[in-house]
């Protein structure tokens, strides 16, 4: 589904991603872990087409197409979805109008007729139940005045509506209370099929107990320095990143900050 080859990217001429290689197949769940500032969100930005990140090297193919050539909305309509680490508030744009427009754009792209207002509300109701999101929230403006956890739930609600092929969850667990974490993870699991894939960016093993990954990658200083199975996440939880640093950069003796 997704093949990333030696991807390098810069922000304001500063290289952030320094050669990423990753292959994601349909049906898989990949977890990406790594210290703050290592480039996890930047990778998500590249995949979704943010303009401020400049790709300087490498290739990304998505279902055989050159992903980097596509404008953000086409990527979305072809099934890429990002649950933002920091979802933005958009006062004045109602959730209902936002989601109805987005869903109908997807339908148009797939040659389907737009949903009528009542059909849309029905779909919305079903998906709301899936992530147990409060009705009040969907009656408001996009994320306006939502709590941190509510914003994250709202991301998954949008994901449920748009049914992506490749979902990238950027720290969706941060800010969620224990119950919300379970609900969100259950929601994500219910949306999983053999045809779609998920990239979970997280700092905590906790989420991976719920959304069990097939692979865990450690992103450090713009590179994937270690990959493994879910056992790797346990090791990280227990020992932090220092041991990997030592392993990868033995000359630093684990002392220096990257």
């Amino acid at each position: 589904m997704l093949i990333i080859k030696d991807l390098k990217a810069s922000i304001n001429n500063k290289e952030i991603l320094k050669g990423i290689n990753l292959k994601v197949n349909a049906g898989e769940v990949h977890a990406i872990m790594g210290p703050n500032g290592s480039g996890k969100s930047t990778l998500a930005s590249v995949l979704t087409g943010r303009e401020y990140v400049e790709v300087t090297h490498g290739k990304v193919s998505y279902f055989g197409e050159d992903l980097l050539e596509m404008i953000p909305e086409d990527r979305a309509r072809k099934g890429i979805f990002l649950s933002f680490q920091y979802p933005i508030e958009i006062p004045g744009v109602s959730m209902v109008n936002f989601m109805k427009t987005a869903l109908n754009e997807h339908r148009k792209f797939n040659g389907l007729a737009p949903l009528s207002a009542s059909d849309f509300l029905k779909v919305m109701r079903d998906k709301k139940n899936l992530v147990e999101i409060d009705s009040n929230l969907t009656n408001r403006a996009v994320n306006e005045g939502f709590s941190g956890g509510e914003k994250k739930k709202n991301e998954i609600f949008q994901m449920a509506l748009l049914e992506p092929k490749l979902a990238i969850l950027d720290e969706t667990d941060s800010g969620l209370d224990i119950d919300a974490l379970r609900i969100v993870a259950n929601g994500v699991n219910k949306l999983r099929t053999k045809e779609n894939a998920t990239i979970v960016i997280t700092h905590y093993q906790r989420l991976l107990d719920h959304i069990v990954p097939d692979f865990v990658h450690v992103l450090m200083d713009g590179r994937i320095v270690k990959s493994g199975t879910k056992e790797l996440a346990y090791q990280l939880e227990e020992k932090g990143y220092d041991w990997i640093k030592k392993e990868v950069y033995p000359e630093l003796n684990g002392n220096e900050v990257l």
């Binding site: 909305e73 979805f81 744009v93 936002f98």
Partner: peptide
């Protein structure tokens, strides 16, 4: 940022602009 958020959900740039102007 808002423009990107809307586009990242599949809304065309022109429609996203319109939504934001209207919101304003």
């Amino acid at each position: 940022e808002a423009l990107f958020y809307l586009r990242s959900r599949g809304i065309t740039e022109s429609e996203a602009r319109l939504m934001l102007m209207y919101a304003f």
